[in-house]
């Protein structure tokens, strides 16, 4: 069984950086706009944004108002508004999140993004892609892919230092 000690965040970040650079070349992306999904995705995006020396300031996306479980869990009053630095219309977007799991977060993020404008293309980069997706959305690049046991949750904690935490939740929950 995997434990948090099995993960080296800096190694994952390096893997992701290499794969992202390849994807950017393959898809002919110039002058991209990078957007991190709060909170973990923003931490990862801040590092990638610096390493890739992206000119446009980093965008922050809060998907709370676009979640598909509002009527079950309600809304947190302290949602910070999304901050998107430039027009989305016609742009090449690199969307960044920490963990890709069910795909629902990315669906919500895409819905919100498209309410700001119509991007030219969107590339999805995640630090960790785990099994368990529930909708037909997949990351374009991931720092690592892994399978977890049922009842295991993986989480990025941070921002300083960034670390991986594995939680065991009741399988029924």
């Amino acid at each position: 069984m995997m434990t948090a000690a099995d993960f080296d965040v800096s190694e994952l970040l390096e893997n992701l950086e290499i794969k992202l650079k390849q994807a950017i070349t393959e898809r002919n992306i110039t002058d991209p706009l990078m957007i991190g999904i709060r909170s973990g995705g923003v931490w990862v995006a801040e590092i990638l944004h610096r390493r890739l020396t992206i000119k446009q300031p980093l965008g922050l996306l809060d998907i709370s108002f676009y979640r598909d479980d509002f009527s079950q869990i309600g809304v947190n009053p302290n949602v910070k508004p999304s901050q998107l630095p430039a027009q989305i219309e016609g742009r090449n977007i690199i969307l960044v999140d920490d963990v890709f799991y069910t795909g629902r977060t990315v669906r919500a993020a895409l819905n919100e993004l498209f309410d700001y404008g119509r991007p030219s293309q969107v590339l999805l980069a995640v630090l960790i892609e785990r099994d368990g997706k529930q909708i037909p959305i997949s990351p374009d690049c991931a720092g690592m892919r892994l399978k977890l046991n049922a009842g295991q949750r993986i989480k990025l904690t941070g921002p300083d230092p960034l670390a991986i935490e594995i939680q065991y939740v009741d399988a029924v929950a």
Partner: peptide
Amino acid sequence: DQRIKKIPL
């Protein structure tokens, strides 16, 4: 600020 001034709540 959104082009589509709507959220789906």
